[in-house]
Design a protein around this nucleic acid. Structure first.
Lengths: 152, 152
DNA sequence: ACCATAAACGCAAGTTAGTTGCAATAAATT
DNA sequence: AATTTATTGCAACTAACTTGCGTTTATGGT
């Protein structure tokens, strides 16, 4: 075990191997690289894009799907639907946030708003069958100014 | 043209044929039945479920997909992702609302909250690239009390 | 009521997205 | 270093969705 010089060390919660082990997974070459791609990406990305970014570390598609599913079930990744064809997107969950998506070019802008918690609280209060919320997703769709200009 | 007795008449905005024509579509037997299923359903439903509910009015899957896509593009239907496997859900858009979904059994409870508009407004104000929002989707995920009881 | 026309349809075939079972491999634990 | 158990890759498969094209059908004009 080589210890890194302080300035080189990643904070533990951004180190793929550490994250994997902490959640009871083996830090295999495959999963480490997959998680690394998602940590660096810092935004939603499709399975096909992940595969491409893996480059020479590419894994079998089955392995990729299984890894993603596992990481989602542990809350390390999040699966989001950006209404772009049939693609599902995955993103590393660092802080909870939402997306503003361009329906035309797919540009994504992230945002967060504490009012969301209030809405969830309201929904719980008014619900007959739910007593607790685990998570939520909010996406706003529109046309970005670049596309708006082009389409005119 | 037979005019219906007042008590039999559907309000125009719930009559599939009227809705179709108003948006420039032909009120074919297929599309009329498809839209009828969705109007009666009053909640998100999968393509497979729609097909089953069509019964003897079943249409080819291609026809179904093309009809759904057209109706979504006109804002008559809405496509939602309830994070249940790979199924996409469609629902008739009567009033804007959101979903509280049980991650276990898939039970759906609809709700709406005016705070959402506020969030959209905030997001627009803070955005660098969006000047206008068309629509948004909000889903809350949790375990319903029935499933919570069973799993214990 | 008939005709023209454009939308909508169904079929066949194809693509993309995601899954299952299983034997081989590689982390982690002892 | 040996053992254990998660993870991997392969082959084959299912599910979800799409494209092209010739035929049918609703609708608006005569």
């Amino acid at each position: 075990m080589v210890s890194l010089h302080p300035i080189m060390a990643k904070s533990a919660d951004l180190d793929p191997r550490h994250i994997l082990n902490k959640s009871g997974y083996k830090a295999t070459k495959g999963r480490t690289c997959i998680l690394e791609v998602l940590i660096n990406e810092k935004g939603p990305i499709t399975v096909a894009e992940i595969s491409k970014k893996l480059g020479r570390n590419k894994v079998d598609e089955v392995t990729l799907y299984r890894a993603l599913e596992a990481l989602v079930s542990s809350g390390i990744l999040r699966k989001v639907d950006l209404q772009r064809g049939n693609a599902r997107y995955y993103e590393f969950v660092e802080t909870h946030h939402h997306h503003f998506v361009c329906s035309d070019c797919g540009a994504i802008e992230s945002f967060s708003d504490k009012l969301c918690e209030k809405i969830v609280k309201n929904a719980l209060k008014n619900s007959n069958i739910f007593k607790k919320a685990d998570t939520h997703s909010l996406e706003i769709f529109g046309i970005c100014s670049k596309c708006a200009k082009q389409n005119r």
